[in-house]
Simulated assay, not measured.
Amino acid sequence: MKPVPAPLSAEDDLRSAETQAGAFQAVREARRSELAEDYVELIAELIAHFGEARPVDIASRLGVTAPTVAKTLDRLARDGLVMRARYRSVFLTDQGRALAEECRVRHDIVVRFLIRLGLDAETAEQDAEGIEHHVSARTLALFAAFAERRGQPETR
């Protein structure tokens, strides 16, 4: 029979609740910025490869409808991340380019970390799309350090 843990004191319970609430708040904040980050990262990639980012290409690559892209681009323009004119290509502002670069760096670190763990590149790319938005700066630094280690990938 498993031993029953001792009940938490009111102080322990409060600290635990505060810690848990902080963690959930961090996740909510990451989710709010995730969409903007995905858009600016993709726009930067499209511009780098094709010289422009057209809304139709954004919709196709994100698997969403043109009206969804239009609505999101309007919000990103209000937030100062993109510049656009109706029926024209989308371009990043300085703020948008900075965010896109930050996202690209985070994404690359997470991909390298996952590959270093022994994951195949395709799965690492897919998994990094979610992880990159939710990892703290402290954890990301540890991921980067681990990814830089020499030797064979870890196996379990």
Rank of each mutant, 00 (worst) to 15 (best):
V56R: 12
V56L: 11
D57S: 13
R61G: 07
G63S: 02
V64D: 11
V64S: 04
V64Y: 04
P67W: 01
P67T: 09
T68N: 03
A70T: 15
K71C: 11
D74F: 02
D74N: 07
R75D: 13
R78T: 09
G80T: 07
G80I: 06
L81G: 02
L81Q: 00
L81Y: 03
R86L: 08
R86C: 07
Y87N: 14
Y87I: 04
R88A: 15
S89V: 06
V90F: 07
L92G: 02
T93E: 01
D94V: 08
Q95N: 05
R97I: 02
A98C: 04
L99F: 01
L99D: 01
C103L: 02
C103W: 00
C103T: 09
R104C: 10
R104L: 12
V105N: 04
F113M: 08
F113N: 08
L114T: 07
I115S: 02
R116C: 10
T123S: 14
T123A: 14
T123D: 15
A124R: 03
E125V: 12
D127Y: 03
D127V: 11
E132S: 06
H133L: 06
H133G: 06
H134Q: 01
V135L: 14
A137P: 08
A137L: 08
T139H: 09
T139I: 10
L140P: 15
A141S: 14
A145V: 11
A145E: 15
